[in-house]
Amino acid sequence: MKALVIEKAADRSLQDLNFVEVLVPTSAEHEGLIKVHADGFSPVDYKIIEGVVSAWPYPHVLGLDVAGEIVSVGKKVTTWHVADWVSGHGDLTKNGCFAEYVIAPPYELVKNSSFCVSCEIATRDLCGTLTAYEAIERKANFANVNTVLVHDAAGGVGSIAIQC
């Protein structure tokens, strides 16, 4: 399969990325294999190219945000089935989704049909939505707060944050 990869640890810019042939990943018993229909390219994707992730194997497939169709599941996966349409946000330490297929554990996925959106929309909004959710629901303490000011609500994170 074709994948967009960083070929070696010394590659640290977008210009170093290359499409190469790699093996289709094999899912473990607790993972599913997804045929990728759309990827989201977020700021995280290009920023981590310049950083160092010691857990990366090389060549490393980039990409965090994916939408597609499950084509196989491991024997311990009970929440997803072949032909389910899903989107998900991956793990920085593992190979990503800028490829024709990607593996993912169930906890990284959400069913697309419940949102009635295209794969392209599903991947476009994942990073911003998760960032807004983390900031508002998990990091901030709004126990005694009645009003919150969201600066720059025209961006991806801010536009989601004002809807919470």
Rank of each mutant, 00 (worst) to 15 (best):
A153K: 00
G155V: 09
K35Q: 13
G90H: 05
A132P: 02
D39H: 09
N146I: 01
G51A: 07
L62A: 07
N141W: 12
E108N: 09
V145C: 08
W80T: 05
D45H: 08
K139G: 02
T129M: 13
E69Y: 06
K76C: 12
T147H: 11
T93H: 07
T123Q: 08
N112I: 15
A99M: 08
K75W: 01
R138T: 01
S118I: 06
I121E: 15
K94Y: 02
V36I: 15
T123L: 05
Y133N: 10
A38R: 06
A28W: 00
Y133I: 11
N146S: 14
G32M: 14
N95S: 14
L62S: 05
H37F: 11
F98N: 09
I103M: 00
P106C: 05
S27R: 04
V148C: 07
L109D: 08
A154S: 14
G40S: 12
C97R: 06
V77A: 01
I103E: 00
H60C: 01
G40E: 12
G68R: 07
H60Q: 07
E31F: 04
Y101G: 10
A28S: 13
Y101H: 15
A154W: 02
D39W: 03
S27Y: 06
I103C: 12
I136V: 14
E100A: 06
C127T: 13
A153W: 00
P106N: 04
V145W: 01
K111G: 07
T78W: 02
L126I: 14
I136D: 03
D39N: 15
G96V: 03
G40L: 12
V53Q: 13
R138F: 00
I136K: 04
P106T: 04
G74A: 07
G32Y: 00
K35T: 02
K94P: 00
A99W: 04
T129S: 15
W56L: 03
S118Q: 06
V44S: 10
C127K: 02
E29Y: 03
C119E: 11
N144V: 03
A67Y: 06
S27D: 01
G51K: 10
T123W: 07
V73D: 08
T79R: 11
V73C: 15
I49E: 07
C116T: 12
H30N: 15
A143D: 15
P43W: 04
G90I: 04
P59C: 06
V102G: 13
Y107Q: 14
G32P: 00
G68S: 06
A99N: 06
D125Y: 14
G155H: 12
D65P: 03
P105M: 11
E100K: 09
D84V: 04
K94G: 01
G32L: 11
G63M: 05
I49A: 08
G68D: 07
N144H: 12
I34E: 13
E120I: 08
F142R: 09
